[in-house]
Design a protein around this nucleic acid. Structure first.
Length: 687
DNA sequence: GGAAGAGTAAACAGGA
DNA sequence: GTCCTGTTTACTCTTC
């Protein structure tokens, strides 16, 4: 239990750190960009400021909500926390940043809580927007009144002024809508809002409270009717902002965001040349258009089938011409790209942090942005073994140095993939396997006696969540799954389920590994198919399993001698060091898990007649964490069944030797250590 | 260099 | 016909 929680802590630490960086980078990035647009406004609080503030409030409220969840919901101030975003709308931005990222919120909070939180924030935003609109309306009214008074005196000059005011206000509205859309998009990207196939602009419309908007637009259009002549004049001359494109076609009262975006778009540049450029770009890409592929339109959300390029161009010009909808979609796509870039940046930072955490001694300051030097990752392993020399909680390591192919899909390289390069054979992963799942040599894992159960016990959660291949053979995994079962038998489907349940890695490439599982079940005699009432189940024939074991590394006298002579870890190569560290750690852990001071457990280890070291430790250790069903008695029973003295002794001694060496090296006081030394070291050494 | 283990792919058969 | 299960073969790669 301690081991698991400790390693759990270690694993969560980087994510927490990343949570900080992620959060800060997010708010910085978003805020930075919005801050840039802020600079365009005129001193007083602008819609941009407001929305920026609201975004911060939403995040802050979510953080507080999370903290509330974490620190106990029975706190008397829980209600205050919920209401605080409303009560303190501005000072929220000055709160100390909490170290919780939106991603973590999503992980911690249930969907219902997230939904409630989001609705709450949206309500707050809407309320504040409405207040802002009312304020703006009042100001506009006042301005109009004064301007009308001036109009009587100034006439044409005043008209232009009013027009400019109106345009400026429209721009402000548009800006607000865009920012709100962006905010919603951000929430979607962060998973706080479920991604829905609806047009984000539609949700924006809903969020913008159409009633208020329409009323506002009516106010504006009222002015517009008075100034219609002026605008038409502007339109004809092509000067100024072309805001009347929709309004002149009597669609203005609809006041939808499409028209506003259209207006904005037209207002930003001259209309006609832009459209021409747009068409020109189509013609340029007539041969291979990026929006056309596999006979269908790649426009977001379109997927219209087009037989040829000509038809596609026609479709593109008809359906995706420069109108409000296309513009909005284009903006959404731009934001998607922006968000992806931000996400990429954050994930890169996270990767760096993970690598730093996994492969660098904490007391050894190194450049944070250490490049991913795969060629020198052999030293990484060494460093790793050095970094956690005393059984400190550490990320999943194994004697086998988990070998995971570098996958093409995810942008984040799993930590174990780093290890894979530390092996000489890892190069094979990059070729010959189109699925990205190269042949994973797990033999080393078994040879180094990596106890599967202890590895799983330590890194159960890690393997469940991380897309990291477990450093064990299929056979050992299958065996473990079966032995974990209450009745030590599983159907094939249950074995599948165990794989997917225990390892995130096996939640993909199902065809590959399931085939491998079936292949292993059929191939190895140790797996016995038993016809049961509910169908065929698979059991483990331990005797056969032990026979199946490959020649052990420890069986090599020279190797053993090397190990013994190299009691100082420095003389061992990196892999052996890692193996020794792992073995000792897991043995220690297993001791602690079962009975730290009991010689009985030790005797069970020694007396079980088990030549599979990994199995030996597995069985002891499985009780600790991930194997809730197998009791020590069961293991004892199982162990009692199998006895294979010849090879068994060799292996048993070897693993005990390894444990002894490492224990001795760590100067850990243990009766067991002494006994191991007395009992086993001489024999092994003489071999 | 060969043997053996391991992983992957694929073909095939039988049953639900 | 499809999917799942189970068997078998072939091939490649790695380690010893």
């Amino acid at each position: 239990m301690m081991v698991e929680s400790a390693s759990e802590t270690t694993r969560t630490t980087p994510s927490n750190q990343n949570g900080v960086s992620s959060l800060s980078s997010h708010s910085d990035g978003g805020g930075g960009r919005e801050g840039g647009s802020n600079g365009d406004t005129n001193g007083e609080i602008s819609p941009v400021d407001l929305l920026h503030l609201q975004q911060q409030q939403a995040l802050q409220a979510a953080r507080q909500f999370l903290l509330q969840q974490a620190s106990g919901l029975n706190s008397p101030s829980s209600n205050e926390v919920k209401q605080s975003p409303v009560q303190v709308p501005v000072s929220m931005a000055m709160l100390t940043p909490q170290m919780i990222s939106p991603q973590q919120m999503q992980q911690i909070l249930s969907p219902a809580q997230l939904q409630a939180l989001l609705q709450q924030q949206q309500a707050i935003m809407l309320q504040q927007l409405q207040e802002y609109y009312k304020k703006q309306q009042e100001q506009l009214h006042l301005q109009l009144l004064t301007q009308q008074q001036q109009q009587q005196a100034g006439k044409q000059a005043a008209k232009e002024q009013i027009g400019n005011k109106q345009l400026a206000f429209q721009q402000q509205l548009i800006q607000m809508q865009q920012l709100q859309q962006q905010h919603i998009l951000n929430l979607q990207r962060q998973g706080l809002v479920s991604l829905q196939p609806t047009n984000p602009m539609q949700s924006l419309q809903q969020a913008m409270c159409p009633g208020d908007l329409q009323q506002l637009w009516k106010e504006v259009s009222g002015v517009q009717s008075a100034e219609e002549a002026l605008k038409q004049q502007q339109q004809q001359t092509g000067e100024g902002l072309d805001l009347s494109t929709n309004s002149t076609s009597s669609s203005f009262p609809k006041a939808n965001t499409h028209s506003t975006l259209h207006s904005l778009h037209n207002g930003q540049s001259n209309h006609t040349p832009k459209r021409d450029r747009y068409r020109d770009s189509h013609e340029e890409h007539a041969g291979s258009h990026p929006l056309y592929g596999h006979g269908e339109c790649k426009w977001p959300g379109c997927e219209a089938l087009c037989d040829d390029m000509g038809q596609f161009i026609k479709h593109l010009n008809n359906e995706h011409a420069l109108d409000d909808r296309s513009t909005a979609q284009c903006r959404v796509q731009m934001q998607v790209v922006q968000q992806l870039e931000i996400q990429l940046s954050k994930e890169s930072e996270r990767l760096q942090a993970m690598m730093t955490h996994l492969h660098m001694r904490p007391s050894e300051p190194k450049p944070f942005n250490q490049p991913l030097n795969l060629a020198s990752s052999g030293s990484l392993l060494k460093r790793e073994s050095e970094a956690y020399p005393e059984g400190l909680p550490h990320p999943p390591t194994s004697a086998a140095a988990p070998i995971t192919p570098v996958r093409q899909g995810p942008s984040v390289i799993s930590s174990s993939s780093l290890h894979s390069h530390s092996h000489s054979h890892s190069h094979s992963h990059s070729h010959s396997h189109p699925h990205g799942v190269g042949p994973i040599r797990r033999r080393i894992a078994d040879k180094f006696c990596t106890p599967i159960a202890s590895e799983l016990a330590q890194n159960c959660e890690f393997y469940k969540n991380a897309d990291v291949r477990p450093p064990f053979t299929y056979a050992s995994l299958i065996r473990h799954a079966i032995l974990e079962a209450p009745d030590m038998q599983l159907t094939l489907n249950e074995i599948y389920n165990w794989f997917t349940r225990m390892f995130a890695y096996f939640r993909r490439n199902t065809a590959t590994w399931k085939n491998a599982v079936r292949h292993n079940l059929s191939l190895h005699k140790c797996f016995v198919r038993v016809e049961n009432v509910k169908g065929a189940v698979w059991t483990v024939d331990e005797v056969e399993y032990q026979k199946r074991r490959p020649p052990k590394m420890t069986g090599s006298p020279t190797l053993v001698k090397n190990m013994i002579s190299g009691l100082g870890f420095g003389s061992l190569n990196a892999s052996y060091q890692a193996a020794l560290a792992e073995s000792s750690l897991t043995l220690l852990n297993s001791q602690g898990l079962v009975n730290p001071s009991s010689a009985a457990s030790l005797n069970m280890l020694h007396g079980m007649g088990h030549n599979d070291v990994s199995s030996t430790v597995e069985q002891v250790n499985s009780n600790g964490s991930c194997s809730p069903t197998l009791s020590p008695q069961q293991y004892g029973h199982q162990v009692h069944v199998k006895e294979e003295p010849t090879e068994v002794e060799e292996d048993r001694r070897s693993v005990s030797l390894m444990a002894t060496i490492t224990h001795g090296n760590m100067a850990l006081p243990s009766d067991r250590d002494d006994r191991d030394l007395e009992d086993e070291l001489p024999t092994d050494e003489l071999e």
